[in-house]
């Protein structure tokens, strides 16, 4: 029913532990042989990277802030992401999803930070297949009456969401990333992505439910 994952997740594994992939290492090795050629190609390489990365800066920063909850840490996270991504840019395949690729690096960089390590220690029940959503997660007509105009309530509800649910929901609703690419970014099966999004939406509705009735 849902589109499957076409890209091999394995190629991103390299980035998690060492941002210099095989093609990038090859490029570095070639640099010592022909400096003039390498300088020109490195400049073209970084220009291509900049053209792809610059438009994503606002999105990366917004997402980094949601992960770190701190301006200084968000800036550091984006900065480190750019550094790692540029070094690994040789392993990026043209015509594949650059946004998913760089968000994946952002997330892996976050997970190796102090805040990220603390967050990743939390285990969520919904990721275990035995207890996947069994209740109806779809909205009822009464949900139409929830006051979506109340931005403060929405912000508060988003902040109360478990970080892993919020992350999946933000990638889907804010960044408009497809399920298969969210699966790549989060390094989880597509079924887990769907489960997290479903659970995040249900929790948000429950958190906003006390607003019910105020418009009467």
């Amino acid at each position: 029913m849902i589109h499957g994952i076409n890209l091999p997740a394995i190629r991103f594994k390299v980035l998690m532990f060492d941002t210099l992939s095989v093609p990038a290492l090859f490029a570095v090795a070639m640099q010592s042989r022909n400096p003039r050629h390498t300088m020109a190609s490195a400049a073209a390489h970084s220009t291509a990277f900049e053209e792809l990365a610059l438009p994503l800066l606002p999105s990366l920063y917004n997402h980094a802030f949601w992960l770190t909850r701190n301006h200084a840490e968000a800036e550091d996270l984006v900065q480190e992401t750019f550094s790692k991504a540029l070094r690994a840019f040789g392993s990026f395949r043209p015509n594949t999803n650059f946004k998913a690729w760089i968000f994946r690096i952002l997330r892996n960089t976050f997970l190796t930070s102090r805040t990220g390590i603390a967050t990743s220690r939390t285990v969520f029940l919904e990721d275990h297949p035995d207890v996947l959503d069994t209740t109806d997660a779809s909205p009822t007509p009464e949900d139409n009456l929830i006051r979506l105009d109340n931005q403060a309530a929405l912000h508060a509800a988003l902040e109360q969401l478990q970080p892993q649910l919020r992350e999946a929901l933000l990638l889907c609703d804010v960044e408009e990333v497809k399920y298969k690419d969210i699966a790549l970014i989060l390094d989880v099966p597509i079924g887990t992505v769907m489960s997290r999004i479903s659970r995040a939406r249900r929790t948000l509705r429950q958190l906003l439910q006390p607003q019910f009735g105020e418009i009467q």
């Binding site: 800066l57 920063y61 917004n62 301006h71 984006v78 900065q79 912000h155 609703d173 804010v174 939406r201």
Partner: peptide, 25 residues
């Protein structure tokens, strides 16, 4: 959710530093 999630923009100085980084790399 999309409206509420678009919430955090980089402050001007952070934006300048990050943009400069992309050029400096």
């Amino acid at each position: 959710t999309a409206r509420a999630g678009h919430r955090f923009a980089p402050p001007a100085d952070a934006l300048a530093r990050l943009t400069a980084q992309l050029h400096r790399e």
